[in-house]
Design a protein around this nucleic acid. Structure first.
Length: 412
RNA sequence: GGAGGGGUCGCAUAGCGGACUAGUGCGAUUGUCUUGAAAACAAUUGUGGCAGCAAUGUCACCGUGGGUUCGAAUCCCACCCCCUCCGCCA
């Protein structure tokens, strides 16, 4: 949610910025509705004040008249409010200055880190997964359909190792570990802002026949951020490191990444969430990016850092930086991490504030990936593969896995 | 899932159609007194909308949403949440 006062004061700027995010509507129209709304509110307030007076005097006939008049105006206001709320709700967060303007092709590569390994005829993660007996998508298809997978044996242990490693690293940085619910109420999904626009169809609804259906979260952020709905937070910054499964319909991705477990309906993820004062937003963004990079770099994986273009940023976010790790079989970098600030956009919708002197101010809310487990395992398998299909385990993970290498099944 | 009890200003409670402009106690803040503190006394004490540069004014909010009434915390309807007991269950 954008601040209506800011919109009133800067209509052209807002129009320009929301268009950069792909919004098609008219700010001038919203301001017109806003004016109508304020006019009605003033009239209704006056009538209500009069109603009190008249009721005190037990003036039944005058009271009845006011009641009728009020009812009419209240109905009008309800209609205007509906339009007003809808228009305001449809406005995406404004991209920060410095976000490249344009569609998804207008990204900027900020830096490239690490040496791309020289592998002759690299096997992809699925082939490796089969050789090593650690990934099974065929049986998953039998049980759950396409875009699912079983992580088995060393890969399953690797998942726990990554989780432990991320938790150990991030708790040291002031993040409180948390395991959130994976089902959330519909009104919460609306307040988060992801179900707007292209977000629709991205998420699973748990029980279709029930009106008050619950939704499966697409990332732990979806149930961690709204924890503090309607609260006034003390002791900012407040940081969480969440672990949960994430569920995605991948509705718009037919035919894309159909092989293996790169793009699946369910995967586990360690995620950073931070609630900060507005002035600390930039600092926190840097911190999150540094931490994500540190986690990736310490695994010895080559990666690049990419600033997304305005048209590619999600509805509630004002800036998004992705980390993409090198995937040898595809001869390219693929997204594994995403660090975003939603500024005060989500905080406004969820009413999350902090004490600023005698006033209350909205917090800024940021989120960033620590590890998307599935894709990180893919990256490890592919980048650390040897000729015979065996895979080394990055040094920092070995104390968590208890093994240094995954050997082909046939050699065991 | 069944049966009971309950949701009121930070907390605890009162109120059950018009003086509720929500009372009282506790807490908190400020002031008086005091070398300082305690105690005592006094005052203040929420959120949001609208108008205004502001002081301020005004409206709304007693779990949520509807309804009845000239007038609703109070009456009616639906829903949500919490507690206790029973059942089921990792």
């Amino acid at each position: 949610m954008l601040d209506i006062k800011f919109i009133r004061d800067n209509p052209e700027l807002v129009q320009k910025k929301v268009e950069q995010k792909g919004y098609k509507g008219s700010i001038a129209q919203l301001i017109k509705v806003d004016g109508k709304r304020r006019d009605l509110i003033e009239k209704i307030d006056k009538l209500r004040s009069k109603r009190k007076e008249v009721a005190d005097k037990r003036d039944l006939s005058e009271g009845k008249k006011i009641k009728e008049d009020l009812k009419q105006k209240e109905i009008q206001l309800e209609e205007v409010n509906l339009e007003y709320g809808k228009s305001l709700n449809e406005l995406p967060n404004l991209p920060l200055d410095g976000v490249p303007v344009g569609d998804e092709s207008q990204f900027e590569i900020i830096k490239t880190v690490g040496k791309i390994p020289k592998i002759d005829l690299p096997k992809d993660h699925l082939e490796l997964g089969e050789i090593l007996d650690v990934i099974d998508v065929e049986r998953a298809a039998k049980v759950s359909g396409s875009r699912f997978g079983y992580l088995k044996n060393e890969a399953a242990i690797l998942e726990f190792a990554l989780v432990e490693y991320a938790l150990a690293t991030l708790t040291k940085e002031g993040f409180s570990p948390i395991i959130p619910p994976v089902l959330i109420k519909e009104n919460i999904t609306q307040q988060l802002g992801y179900w707007q626009g292209k977000g629709q169809g991205e998420y699973y609804r748990a029980d279709d026949e029930d009106e008050s259906g619950l939704y499966l979260i697409g990332t732990s952020e979806h149930s961690i951020v709204p924890m503090h709905k309607d609260e006034i937070l003390e002791n900012l910054p407040k940081r969480y490191v969440g672990f949960s499964s994430a569920f995605r319909r991948e509705a718009g991705s037919y035919g894309k990444d159909t092989r293996g477990i790169l793009r699946v309906h369910q995967f586990d993820k360690v995620e950073m969430i931070a609630f900060v004062k507005p002035e600390d937003d930039e600092k926190e963004r840097k911190k999150m990016l540094e931490l994500s990079e540190k986690l990736v770099a310490s695994l010895g994986l080559p990666y690049q850092v990419k600033k997304l273009a305005s048209g590619d940023i999600s509805f509630p976010a004002a800036e998004t930086i992705d980390i993409e790790i090198w995937i040898p079989s595809q001869n390219t970098y693929r997204e594994t991490h995403s660090i975003s600030t939603t500024t005060d956009f989500q905080a406004r919708r969820l009413n999350i504030k902090f004490n600023l002197g005698v006033k209350k101010e909205f917090v800024h809310i940021l989120n960033g990936t620590a590890f998307a487990i599935g894709r990180t395992i893919i990256a490890i398998l592919e980048n650390y593969q040897k000729k015979d299909g065996s895979v080394e385990i990055p040094k920092v993970l070995q104390k968590y896995t208890g093994f240094a290498k995954i050997k082909p099944k046939s050699t065991r």
